Computed example of a mutant assay.
Amino acid sequence: MSEAEMTSAWQPRGAWAGATHVGRHGSSHGEAGVRLLLREEIGLATIIVAGGREAALREILHDRLGWWLPEVGTTSIQGERGLVWSAPGQWLGVAETRRDLSSLQELLQGVAAVTDQSDGRAVVRVSGHRARAMLAKGVALDLHPRAFRTEHTAVTNIAHINAQIWQRDEGPTYDIMVARSFAGSFWSWLTHAAAEFGYEVERSSAR
């Protein structure tokens, strides 16, 4: 094997590489009921507050980034950047790319532990007029608007796979995050569940 061939074999791959195919799939009748947008460039970082430092964390995030800490089970995202509640004293920072979160560790030194999760997680955005009906097939959560609305989030199981879901708008549009090692299994379930409604797969463009 040539040096060029050996080098190319080790090129970085997105979390969805090899499992997904861009385009229209499933039922071909009418408009696709589900849209799946692969968030391959997304930046993710866990933020775990140090004991007794939540007030300091809140102040730094607000003053330096214009972010605010969301309450239990909610998000505080403006555009594509912000925070998702994950557990008591723990939040998920999200942004368009990992570069947009690169300053967090230094910014929060002594206040919170920051760990980059961009390569360890896979995120897909699910939308379309049949998105809620499709997700109801496997999400262990009541997604009816009376129970789960915009800015709500939950750590749950989807088809027996641990996941975190947060609702972006009343479309409805959801972002779903799973461990990278489960991306293939999750995608298999997701596409089978979406097939009867027809679904469109797209990739987010890198900046």
Rank of each mutant, 00 (worst) to 15 (best):
L83S: 10
S102D: 13
F197S: 05
A32H: 08
W67E: 04
G23P: 03
I161T: 03
A147G: 04
W67F: 15
R53S: 13
G43F: 13
V84L: 08
L83N: 12
R99C: 06
P12V: 01
T75W: 12
E3N: 11
S86E: 09
H25C: 00
D116N: 13
W187T: 04
M177L: 14
A136C: 02
L104S: 09
L107W: 01
E151R: 14
R53F: 11
S27Q: 04
F182D: 00
T191D: 00
G26F: 02
S102V: 12
G18C: 07
G89A: 06
A140L: 14
P88N: 00
V72L: 11
V114N: 09
R53Y: 10
P88H: 02
R125L: 08
E200N: 11
V178Q: 03
L37E: 11
T115H: 10
S181D: 09
V49W: 02
I42E: 14
R81N: 10
V178F: 02
V123L: 12
S76L: 07
A15C: 11
A194F: 00
G52C: 05
A45R: 12
W166N: 04
Q105N: 10
I77V: 15
P70R: 06
E40R: 12
A163N: 00
A113R: 13
A95R: 01
K137I: 00
A15D: 05
R132M: 04
R132E: 07
N157V: 13
H21V: 12
Q117V: 03
A206P: 15
S2W: 09
R180A: 10
A179Q: 13
T74H: 15
G43R: 11
R58T: 10
Q11R: 15
R203D: 13
S27P: 01
E96A: 15
D175N: 13
R24I: 02
W166I: 02
A113N: 11
S27W: 01
R81W: 01
S204R: 13
R130I: 03
V123C: 14
K137G: 04
E80D: 15
G43W: 09
V139P: 07
T46L: 13
D169L: 03
I47R: 07
M134T: 00
E41G: 14
W85E: 07
A112Y: 15
P88G: 02
A131C: 08
A183P: 06
